[in-house]
Amino acid sequence: MKTINQVDGFSKERFLQVVKRFWVLNQKKWLIGFAGGVGILILIYLLNSTQPTGYGNSGYAVLGVGLTLYKFGGYFLTSGIFNELGKKSSASQMLTLPASTLEKFLAGWFLTYFLYTIVVMGLLYLIGLFLEVNPILTTPPFSESTVDASDFYFLDTLLTYTALHSVFFLGSIYFDGNHFLKTLLAIVLFFIGLGIISVIFTILIANDFNFSYQFVHSPENMLFSVVFGKIAVAALFLFLSYRQLQNRQIA
């Protein structure tokens, strides 16, 4: 059996072995998830193709649902990637696994974000080719306005996944159980809190309201804010996830 040469600093061999371990531990859940997702898409296609609205709409519906499943399926699978840490009986397996915190962190991110996105997007691309409708991932024969809107929708989906994936990634390390539900609840509570603060803020400085509204809603600013904001959220939560993994102790 080939053993890994233990070196200082980042080791590609260790990283790949951790990826392999994560994959083997989660493959059943992931394959069931993928099969379920494909099943849902086939069902949507069949239901839509029997409607009088035509073939093109089936493709749109399938890809639209596909992108939604990409996001929520990803959040769910990401939530479970470090679930060993949540239990006293299994935490030692992960905490004492001879790889650095960075290698474990990157291995989890690589599988749940990078590889997952490539596989699911590749699958959606193939489905789009098969359905001969692919407004999201290819250059389609549509009017310019539709292409722009589709491109933005795709980019927004990817950015939203990038941002929220990092939050669920932190949740998988931070919480001891029910990672998905607890993270979801934390996000909901955060937005409720943010909403309340916004309302109070708006009431308190009502005179500046128009300025803020105009600033946010100018098209260039909005696009910039959305892209920058989501990337910033992802970077922040990935940093917090790394620190949390570094400081994680047995449950």
């Binding site: 053993t3 392999k20 059943k28 060993e84």
Partner: peptide, 22 residues
């Protein structure tokens, strides 16, 4: 108290042994 992953003993060895040089 421990909980081992749901895999065969041989698979566990294949996945974890490479981390131990000796």
């Amino acid at each position: 108290q421990f909980e081992l992953p749901p895999m065969s003993g041989d698979q566990y060895t294949q996945l974890h042994a490479p981390f131990y040089p000796r």
